[in-house]
Design a protein around this nucleic acid. Structure first.
Length: 678
RNA sequence: GGCGGCGUAGCUCAGUUGGUCAGAGCAUGCGGUUCAUACCCGCAGUGUCGUUGGUUCGAAUCCAACCGCCGCUACCA
């Protein structure tokens, strides 16, 4: 019996939440509830990360204040959690004064002690290449890539000294194998750190929807310190009342999606080390839910709305599916068919029907009154023993963060009880007048169900409580605790009511669709970190920790680091623009390049000339759909070899900062290939 | 390209340190039962354990190569 502090990421209110968010939060809720049953003092935190340029932009586009916008969206978050029966202890919003004050205190302290320093994001910048270079990397003072002139760029930013803590962090990770889980994520992080950490830009001047940097209000605190620190600011760290902090920190578990493991196992621990605070005991990166693209979306908005699912199926079928179907830590598939199948097979047939048939016999044979049991047979004792065994297994599984296995174990007991009915055949006992044996069997069934109700409650609380009430038991399961999972506690004489089936069977569709390509849902947290991680450009000899600005407002580290998409560039003259030879071209052939997941080889016609161009658009276009299209090509770009394939020019395309969406540019009506673009 | 991992019944996957390890669930087929939501219970499978070579008395389990897939990273004109 101890304390248990579990957190989810704080979600970004740029849009409604999808099933992926519900997955994380449901798992955290199940863990929190389970530890409550264990008798731990539990604190379960979730919340919202509400600052950043993206929010500012969305609000502006709607003509409202950012705060007004996030208030609206966050209300939908909280509504979803209510519908899912998420029992959190606190919901932290980064726009709350309690959080802002604490973040400023944290920032100031790190600044005062030198872990944060003000510097410039500066370097030699090659516009065409959108790349930063170190002095020594330049060739003849020019871009080593394209040999064009570079320019000196600088912008002010605050930096956190990740580099200073790299060794300590590595030692901690190596000394605590449980710190990062699953194992594969841990290994990835170790390798990442070993490659070397760059100091991290932790402020922005390019937008102002954020917490001002104390003493330098041109800057706002960027997402890293703003969002990650919620795990302690919510507990009152650095405030007048920090009793929760003292009681619950360090966290027992930060539950996160695998795409943000890096931020939670590198940046966050280093912030804590710099503050002299203990590190969380464990960061667990669970897998993603993959969606059937075809079923779920017509175009790209493949969002599965959890509210709609809950309205259709109820919270418990969704919770059960999420926790049972997917191996925690690995990716899993979500589909409507699978959800329906799980609900029918496990919930309706096995569990729901067990209650229904048991209650039915009690009503029929004993007027709904639970009789006192007679002497136990060998089979009875086996059933009793299984309760204890399943209880032990369930506890062990939950300690290992394997809710899917915990549920599988509980269902062993349910299955055994169904079989027990068959073996004992109460209807035969009734016919034969074996009343004492019938009493015993009926009592045993009730007793299994009572134990199951408790065991199942952390996962599907509404169902657990419903069974409890059907069995005529008073009070709340929460008050029972796992101590009540023990044979023989049902008081004979109780009144059981059959009622309606717990889970009506859902019509399964005849036409089962084959496995269409699945699309990964981005479990956006902290301003789309998944995309950030994927696109973080590393300078030649450096490895940025999280250099990419998820929302396109990056201030990279002081050394060489390419500019991310969306960063404002210095002005140029019309003459400089005129140096670009942009041409219209017609795609005549297109094919994938082997072993290059993003590259396509295009043969394009530009007037009399035909060229080969390599383009990084394979994730967005199929070769066959490109043939015949007209595109814009930078015709005077120095040729380069990509994956050994020569590219004689560059195709123009627009893409979102996260790289998830990309569109090729072309003329809005056909023109002869080779036309000049200006 | 670098690093890491994975490829086991139709599907999803278990298989510690090599010797009942060839398994579970789902799906399928057959049988039973009637308390029950066409439910529940029983039985039956099928598998060259990715491929090819090694080590060994013996390998799904160790080694090598190859094929395919995935993750991180890089690249992404």
């Amino acid at each position: 019996m101890g304390k248990y502090y579990v957190t989810t990421p704080i979600y970004y209110p740029s849009d409604k939440l999808h099933v992926g968010h519900a997955y994380t939060t449901t798992a955290a809720d199940a863990l929190a509830r389970f530890h409550k049953l264990l008798g731990d003092e539990v604190y379960f935190l979730t919340g919202s990360d509400e600052h950043g340029q993206k929010i500012q932009r969305i609000a502006a586009s709607k003509g409202i204040q950012p705060k007004e916008y996030v208030d609206r969206i966050v209300a939908t978050f909280q509504d979803l959690w209510r519908r899912l029966d998420i029992q959190y202890d606190d919901f932290i919003r980064t726009t709350e004064p309690r959080h802002q004050r604490a973040v400023q205190a944290i920032f100031k302290r790190l600044l005062d002690q030198g872990d944060i320093y003000k510097s410039k994001y500066e370097g030699w910048y090659c516009e065409p290449c959108e790349a930063f270079w170190l002095e020594r990397q330049l060739e003849d003072g020019k871009c080593p890539d394209c040999h064009r002139p570079v320019q000196w760029v600088e912008e002010e930013s605050y930096f956190l000294r990740l580099s200073a803590y790299q060794d300590r962090l590595l030692q901690h990770i190596q000394a605590h194998p449980e710190f990062i889980q699953p194992e594969s994520r841990r290994n990835e992080m170790i390798r990442f750190i070993e490659a070397g950490l760059n100091d991290l830009s932790v402020s922005r001047t390019t937008f102002d929807w954020g917490i001002p940097v104390p003493g330098d209000e041109k800057h706002v605190v960027y997402v890293w310190i703003d969002a990650l620190s919620n795990y302690i600011t919510a507990l009152g760290y650095a405030s007048a009342d920090d009793h929760l902090y003292r009681k619950f920190w360090p966290a027992d578990l930060h539950l996160v999606g695998k795409e943000i493991v890096r931020f939670h196992t590198i940046i966050w621990p280093i912030i804590l080390m710099a503050l002299g605070l203990p590190l969380p005991k464990q960061v667990f990166g669970h897998g993603w839910l993959l969606f059937d693209a075809e079923k779920m979306s017509k175009s790209r908005g493949n969002v599965v709305d959890p509210v709609a699912l809950i309205e259709e199926f109820g919270p418990d079928p969704l919770r059960y599916f999420l926790l049972r179907e997917v191996v925690f830590g690995q990716d899993g598939n979500f589909s409507r068919e699978a959800l329906i199948h799980r609900t029918n097979a496990d919930l309706a047939n096995d569990l729901g029907n067990l209650l229904y048939r048991s209650a039915s016999m009690l009503e029929r044979y004993r007027d709904g009154r639970v009789p006192a049991p007679g002497p136990a047979s060998a089979r009875d004792r086996e059933l009793m023993g299984l309760v204890g065994e399943v209880k032990r297994e369930t506890i062990a599984c939950m300690e290992r963060l394997e809710p899917h296995n915990a549920l599988a174990s509980i269902w062993r007991l349910i299955g055994r009880a169904n079989k027990y009915i068959d073996e004992e055949a109460p209807w035969a006992l009734q016919r034969q007048g074996q009343q004492e044996r019938l009493d015993t069997v009926l009592y045993n069934l009730v007793e299994v169900l009572r134990n199951v109700a408790i065991l199942v409650w952390p996962f599907i609380p509404r169902t657990g409580q419903a069974i409890w009430q059907r069995l005529g038991l008073p009070g709340e399961i929460l008050q029972q605790g796992l101590a009540a999972v023990k044979w023989g506690l049902y008081p004979p004489g109780g009144a059981v009511t059959r009622g309606e089936p717990l889970f009506p069977r859902i019509e399964e569709k005849e036409n089962q669709e084959k496995g269409e390509p699945y699309v990964t849902m981005d479990q956006a947290v902290f301003e789309k970190p998944a995309a950030a991680a994927g696109t973080a450009p590393g300078a030649t000899a450096t490895v940025p920790v999280a250099g990419a600005a998820p929302e396109g407002a990056a201030a990279p580290s002081p050394s060489a680091e390419p500019a991310p998409d969306g960063a404002p560039l210095p002005q140029i003259t019309i003459d400089e623009f005129a140096r670009l030879d942009l041409r219209l071209a017609t795609i005549e052939e297109a094919e994938a390049i082997p072993k290059a997941d993003k590259l396509l080889r295009l043969q394009v016609r530009m007037g009399p000339e035909r060229r080969q161009i390599v383009a990084g658009i394979a994730r967005h276009y199929r070769p066959e759909e490109l043939v015949g299209r007209q595109i814009v090509v930078v015709a005077n770009l120095k040729p380069a070899r990509l994956r050994g394939v020569e590219s004689q020019g560059m195709l123009l395309a627009a893409s979102t900062p996260d790289g998830e969406q990309l569109a090729i540019l072309g003329p809005d009506k056909p023109l002869p290939a080779g036309c000049k673009v200006k």
